[in-house]
Design a protein around this nucleic acid. Structure first.
Lengths: 206, 206
DNA sequence: CCGGTGGATGAACGATCATTCACTAGCGCG
DNA sequence: CGCGCTAGTGAATGATCGTTCATCCACCGG
């Protein structure tokens, strides 16, 4: 009845948990949280449906874990890539590059984090909204710094920040690997668009 | 058992069909197609679940009707608002204004048309993709015209077109009526952002 | 005034959903 | 060497899903 895997059961390790997360991630991203069943996730992992509950308390807990884990990793990666000080133009360029490349590298995580907010129950929802706000705040800070220094032509910081993020995130809706442009080329195009939209004519040294 | 409504049944008219569409529209937009049941839609309309099938062959047919109807109306409205000739800068302004205001007026239709593509079966999917492509093509045409005339600083027409549309569509994720800005004010901010992102310094008469 | 028809009903269909649970197999530790 | 824990099983739970259907009602044209 069982295959000759090296470990049929027991406690070798818990890479099953990660396998469940990976399977759920791609399925949720592809068809949406409500349209995916626990049976499908289990099948993708290679276990039966009941086995998932050894690692996650519920389908909802699995979703929260995915979204929260992603957002925290995103914030950590952002702060590692974009220093908190320096010339706002340079920081904006780094923010855009980071955002585009991260979104192209992990499109599924990003898509879920932005789209499945409505599938969250109140408890998880408020935590996720706070994380999202913190991320957007990073960009608002850059725009505000540039506005004060007079290097950005900003008419409205909050609106422009949301506009920029939407523009950048939208890259995931059309970009496909192996197409006309490489990821880096696409990122540079978006950097140029962002700069232009803020009236930046020449960037400092870089 | 039945309320004293003016028409309990019979053939007074068929505004029930429109009521079903309206109910399904807001429910699908709010929680997503797979998460909404026919029972909920019927309850919102004030009929029993079986009654929906007098007007729509299936849940899928209802979704297709909503999405296709919206996209066709969107294209008609666009072509009525944005003439096919004239100065590309002016046309771009009109496109942006139209897009933002239409999206703020009918956020549910727009959201469904862009998000529920994955819920479509192959037949409806190809038709919707074609309609979407036609809409995006309008903007690409404007950018290409401006590029040829030398009034737009375009590095890559397709990428910039997708970036613009994503930026504009994103307005639905944050704008709420009664906030700091009116719809028209928001639209003008987006027009300015779009112009700036294309390096337009001064627009013609308007 | 009567027969046909469009529209609504409400019960029922089988399928599938998330979740629970008693059970068991294997491993590490004492 | 055997005890206990981790992890997976497989069947079962009740709920809910989309859809079907026989039935009924109220109106309209002749």
């Amino acid at each position: 009845m069982l295959k000759d895997k090296t470990s049929i059961s027991g406690q070798p390790k818990a890479d099953t948990k990660q396998a469940i997360e990976r399977a759920a991630l791609s399925l949720f991203a592809e068809r949406g949280y409500p349209a995916v069943s626990m049976r499908e996730i289990a099948e993708r992992v290679g276990i039966r449906q009941g086995g998932i509950y050894n690692h996650f308390a519920s389908k909802q807990a699995l979703l929260v874990q995915l979204m929260e884990g992603h957002m925290r990793a995103l914030l950590v990666a952002l702060d590692a890539s974009v220093p908190s000080g320096g010339d706002p133009r340079q920081r904006l360029g780094e923010f855009v590059r980071f955002h585009v490349l991260y979104h192209l590298t992990q499109p599924d995580d990003v898509f879920i984090a932005y789209m499945e907010l409505r599938s969250l129950e109140p408890a998880g929802l408020s935590r996720l909204k706070e994380l999202r706000r913190a991320y957007e705040e990073r960009l608002r800070g850059i725009l505000e710094a540039g506005r004060r220094l007079g290097v950005f032509a900003v008419t409205d910081v909050p609106v422009q920040a949301m506009g920029l993020i939407a523009m950048l995130t939208g890259v995931t809706t059309w970009y496909r690997d192996g197409g006309r442009l490489s990821r880096d080329e696409v990122a540079e195009i978006y950097v140029a668009m962002a700069m232009q939209s803020l009236g930046v004519e020449e960037t400092p040294t870089m």
